[in-house]
């Protein structure tokens, strides 16, 4: 019984990982790729590690805190790394997709620069 649940979690996680990788090939822009990498693949790895935790808890009677720590760590750090990559790409001048219409960070930076010049 527990093996069916574990294999369900495993296959779900693996499919989400494949979804993230296909997105990183197919999407047109660096920023959209960052979006795909930090959401789909994080969900995939969380599903896989939840499966590992459940397997060792119910089939082997071992409660491993390190696996839970891994889940929490990946869950916390993946959005931060995505934010850092997107910010550095923006400051480095990586071009947007040509169908992009909205750029909030540029407007904010110009407003901030104007305030700094006036003061």
């Amino acid at each position: 019984m527990i093996e069916i649940i574990v294999s369900l979690f495993i296959l779900l996680g693996a499919l989400f990982m494949l979804l993230g990788s296909v997105a990183i090939i197919r999407l047109p822009d660096t920023y959209t790729r960052v979006n795909a990498a930090t959401k789909a693949s994080t969900l995939g790895v969380i599903g896989t590690m939840v499966a590992v935790f459940l397997y060792f808890l119910f089939a082997k009677d071992i409660l491993s805190g390190k696996i839970l720590l891994t889940i929490i760590f990946v869950f916390m750090t993946a959005p931060i790394s995505g934010l850092m990559i997107a910010r550095s790409a923006f400051h480095n001048g990586v071009p947007f997709w040509d169908k992009n219409k909205h750029n909030d960070l540029k407007v904010h930076l110009e407003k901030k620069q104007k305030v700094n010049q006036n003061s």
Partner: peptide, 21 residues
């Protein structure tokens, strides 16, 4: 660009966690 490569390398690291699991 270099940022694409960094994103893909980060994703490889995350997928390696699943493989070791």
């Amino acid at each position: 660009s270099v940022s694409d490569r960094v994103v893909a390398l980060d994703l490889i690291g995350i997928h390696l966690i699943g493989i070791v699991g």
